[in-house]
Amino acid sequence: MNTYIFSIVTFVYMAAMVVFVAYLAFRKPLVARVATVIMTAGWLAQTAAIGLRWYESYEMGIGHAPMSNLYESLVFFSWTIILLYLFIQYKYKIKILGAFVTPFAFLGMAYASISPSVNETIQPLVPALQSNWLISHVVTCFLGYAAFAVSCGVSCTYILKKRYEDRQATGGVLGAFPASGVLDELIYKTIAIGFPLLTIGIVTGAAWANYAWGTYWSWDPKETWSLITWFIYAAFLHARVTRGWRGVKAAVLSIVGFVAVIFTYLGVNLLLSGLHSYGGG
C-alpha cells in the first residue's frame, strides 16, 4: 500500500517540477503558487505513506522506523529535500529555486520506485541496526544532505546568474532570477543549516559506533566519505571569507560538496565496501 502511494508521489513531484520550470519561462506568480500547492500535496501524501509504512512494519512484528534500507532512505531523502525547500521558500519568499530543487526529490523517488536493484519490501533489522541511535543518526544526516541538495541547486543558479550579470545582459529567463548577491547569501544560509546537521550526523554516528562496537571512528569508507564531505564544506565556509575565493569558486566548492554527499550516500555502497547496510538494497 505505502509503495503504491510512493509511486504516485513520484509523479506528483514530476508534475511540480514541470510547473516550476514553466514558472521559470512564464514568470506568473499564479504558476508558482500552483507548483507549490502540487508540491505540498505530494509532500503530505508522502508523509502519510511514511507513517503508514512505519505502522505496517509494526503490524508485521518487525517494527522499526522506515529508514533502514536503500529504498526507505531514498524516500526519506526526497521527503527531507521537499521539507527543507518548503521551509526556505516560506522563510525567504523565493520561488524560483523550485525548478532546481524538485529534480533531486523527483530523481530520488524515481530511482527508488523504478530501479530493479532497490528492494521495496519491509525487511527486519540486523542486530547492529537495532538501536535508538538509528533514528537520530539518519534523520540528522539526511536533513543535512537535503540542505546541501538545496544549496547545490542554488549554486548552479548562482553561477548562471553571475555569468549573466557579468555579460551585463538583460531579459531572458535568467533575468527573472534573484540577483547573484541574494543567491550567494542563500548558498551560505543553506550550508549554514546543512553543516551543523552533518556535524551532528557524524557525531551521532560516532557515538553509536562507540556504543555498539567500541570505536568511535574506524575510518570505514562511509565514515571517511562523510568526513570528506565535511572537509569540503568547511573549505567552503572559509572560502567565503577569503579574498580570491569568494563567489564562483565558493559556489563550485558547494557543488563539489554535494557530489561528495551523493557519493557518501550511494557511491560508497555501490562501489566500495564497509559497515553500512543499504548496499544493493
Binding site: I228, F231, I232, A234, A235, H238, A239, T242, G244, W245, A260
Partner: peptide, 11 residues
C-alpha cells in the same frame, strides 16, 4: 588560504 588548501588536501 592555507586552511582552504589543507582542507581540500585532506578531502
Amino acid at each position: 588560504k592555507l586552511t582552504i588548501f589543507l582542507l581540500i588536501l585532506l578531502a
